[in-house]
Design a protein around this nucleic acid. Structure first.
Lengths: 240, 240
DNA sequence: CACGGAAATTGAACGCCGTACAAGAAATGG
DNA sequence: CCATTTCTTGTACGGCGTTCAATTTCCGTG
């Protein structure tokens, strides 16, 4: 109650960080049941027992909160996906790809609203801030996939019907990162990585948004078949 | 100004249909710039010069209007896609698939908000009515793709790493429609059709929602490469 | 310990929204 | 011409994001 305590990092700042965390936690809870549109500053404040306008000390606007959430959620997704990949031996390219793909789907099924938050329409007229945090996580996803593809290169190149891709086709910062991590990889590999991304995204998005349910009862089987085919199209032996 | 006029179909009903059409037209305009969330019944009424509550004579609720719009837009998309497909000779399976895929992407780029309306989160807590009209259009999409795949069958079967799909894996009505149109097609072909759907959907969804833009400047090239590879994975000669 | 100022919080207000409902206007059919 | 159906309006409620002046709470310092 007195003395100096460990006020080193500032007691006020700590309380502030705690409140910020609570706001985000409640926002995520509201989103989990009710979707991103259910994230209302007033509802959060009500749940926390504070006044509606108090939130504005912590987030300048609702979109700022959404932006932060997107960053957090996207980061947690990537953490999980990378962990799944790293649970496979580094030289087991096929299973690393399969693990990556399955991890995304499992995460999406467990956090459908989170998936929609990241990859869908976050909310009414929401505009992602230029060069903001979300692109950073997306780049991480893209780079991770590039790594998976790089492990199959140039073996997979011959199997692909590639266009004539140039480095200038891609964002400079992404190119820099990729060339730094994989110096000898040609631009076609980056294009292939993006296509792999799209291939994983397609069925998951359809399923998450409820377009697959009315057609099939076995989306898992379908997705697995797609992943197996994807792996084979990269010239790898069948996993498992 | 007088006489009996052609009141055969009911003058009242005609006016009503006209007003309904105007509401939908304005709703689409609001959606085109501002997204689905910009569709507000009050704004529509304002634009039409009528009172806010008047709309409720034409649509019981906002979600009812959205549902109708989804149906209309989805139908127009399918019309366009099927037209693009039918512009190719029936025996030119490769170009029919390519045309189908390109038509979806071009439509999505021309009507991004329409794409989001169909395949994304339509709006705050919107719940698609069970067995409603949207599933019908989705079934049409799925059936169209099945036809494209059927044209490559059983040639494409041997190239696929298929799971062991049963008819019972799919929705009964879809199965009935498919077996009626293609009596000798096995369930694996239907699974392949859904996978093709997902493969087309993936890159388009990423691009439409702005996740591809930060990575590449050439999404068209990327998508085309994916379609070419998809066609080759079905065992067809390269188109064009 | 007291006090001045900064940080955090409040409450009221504005203009949106979807929706409901009773009252009024308009058009129809007998 | 009138009765009935159909359509439209005005008003109201609660919820939303956001702003702003007023207020409370807390901290470092004299």
């Amino acid at each position: 109650m007195s003395s100096v305590d460990e006020q080193v990092p500032g007691r006020r700042a700590r309380l502030r960080a705690q409140t910020t965390a609570e706001i985000k936690a409640i926002a995520l809870k509201l989103m989990a049941d009710g979707g991103a549109d259910a994230i209302s500053l007033r509802a959060i404040a009500r749940e926390m027992g504070m006044s509606g306008s108090a939130i504005y000390s912590y987030f300048e606007t609702r979109d700022a909160l959404i932006t932060t959430l997107i960053n957090d959620v996207y980061t947690s997704l990537m953490d999980q996906v990378e962990a799944a990949r790293d649970a496979c031996r580094p030289d087991d390219a096929a299973n690393r790809i399969l693990a990556w793909g399955q991890a995304i789907r499992e995460w999406a099924l467990a956090n459908p609203q989170g998936f929609r938050l990241i990859y869908g329409d976050p909310v009414a007229g929401y505009q992602a801030p230029e060069g903001g945090p979300a692109p950073e996580a997306a780049k991480r996803a893209c780079l991770g996939l590039t790594g998976l593809v790089a492990a199959t290169w140039p073996h997979s190149q011959s199997l692909q019907a590639g266009g004539d891709h140039q480095w200038s086709d891609f964002a400079p910062t992404l190119v820099a990162t990729v060339r730094d991590a994989f110096p000898d990889l040609p631009p076609a590999a980056l294009a292939l990585a993006l296509r792999v991304w799209g291939r994983m995204h397609g069925l998951i998005a359809l399923e998450t948004y409820g377009h697959l349910g009315p057609q099939t009862h076995e989306p898992a089987k379908l997705y697995r078949a797609e992943m197996i085919d994807l792996i084979r199209s990269l010239g790898l032996e069948q996993p498992k």
